[in-house]
């Protein structure tokens, strides 16, 4: 049986057979401002509110306050969920800010080993089944070579897949439209690209499911809107 984790993001689950396959790693990519973090927040908040599932939002760059403020802008109140133990906004970025670059390297605060160790322990009390890592791009900066990053990323991915988590990894796209390290998509089971484009003076946001293992998915480019309550995809409308 192929169990799925619904995102409950209007229009999105229809494109991917009902949601992300259980225990998979799903890459959400896009340029800055393409609503990647919002996608991650909705995935966790909807999971907590509608499916009673615990989620962890692991942020390495954006502050906790910034995430809470961004969510409030879409009428999403995270704090009550935190108090219930349904959602954890884990701000590792704060720790990184409070130490020098040398200390950060010495302690490996943004390394996959640290994240791996942290998650193993956290899961014993949180019981989380959903994870958002924001962002894999930030973790990659810790590694001096792409080869080392690839090895560590594969190890980390294996842990995620065996820990009962259905994960989202957020990754930035370069101006050439490629993932930052060119390896993220090989580790992930799926890749969803969020973008925006201008056509005949009209500016619109787009979503494309580039890859999705274990799933008969819709690979076409669809428009989406960022509404008062978050992302809404138009599954029946296709661009280009």
């Amino acid at each position: 049986m192929n169990i799925r984790k619904a995102t409950h993001i209007p229009g999105f689950d229809e494109l991917v057979g009902g949601g992300f396959a259980d225990g998979t790693i799903n890459l959400i990519t896009g340029p800055p401002g393409s609503a990647k973090s919002l996608f991650g927040i909705q995935y966790l908040v909807n999971g907590a509110q509608l499916d009673d599932e615990v989620g962890i939002y692991l942020t390495l760059e954006e502050s906790r306050e910034s995430i809470l403020r961004a969510a409030k802008g879409f009428s999403i109140d995270i704090e009550p969920l935190e108090k219930e133990g349904k959602l954890y906004i884990v701000d590792l970025g704060k720790m990184r800010m409070e130490c020098s670059s040398a200390e950060e390297l010495e302690w490996g605060l943004a390394s996959f080993d640290t994240l791996n160790d942290f998650l193993k322990n956290h899961l014993t009390f949180s019981g989380a089944t959903r994870l958002v890592l924001d962002s894999v791009t930030a973790v990659g900066l810790y590694y001096k070579s792409t080869e080392l990053l690839r090895r560590e990323l594969f190890k980390f991915a294996r842990l995620l897949k065996t820990s009962g988590l259905t994960s989202i990894m957020i990754s930035e796209l370069t101006s050439d439209g490629e993932t930052r390290y060119g390896i993220e998509e090989f580790v992930a089971d799926s890749m969803v690209k969020l973008d925006y484009e201008s056509s005949s003076g009209e500016y619109r946001r787009t979503l494309t499911v580039k890859k999705m293992r274990f799933t008969k998915h819709d690979p076409l480019k669809h428009p989406f809107l960022v509404m008062d309550t978050g992302i809404e995809v138009s599954p029946d409308e296709v661009i280009g």
């Binding site: 409070e98 080993d113 160790d117 322990n121 956290h122």
Partner: peptide, 15 residues
């Protein structure tokens, strides 16, 4: 603390 956050506990306490 280690049982909750792993290796980071040493970092937190030392700091």
């Amino acid at each position: 603390l280690s049982g909750l956050v792993g290796f980071l506990s040493r970092f937190i306490v030392q700091k």
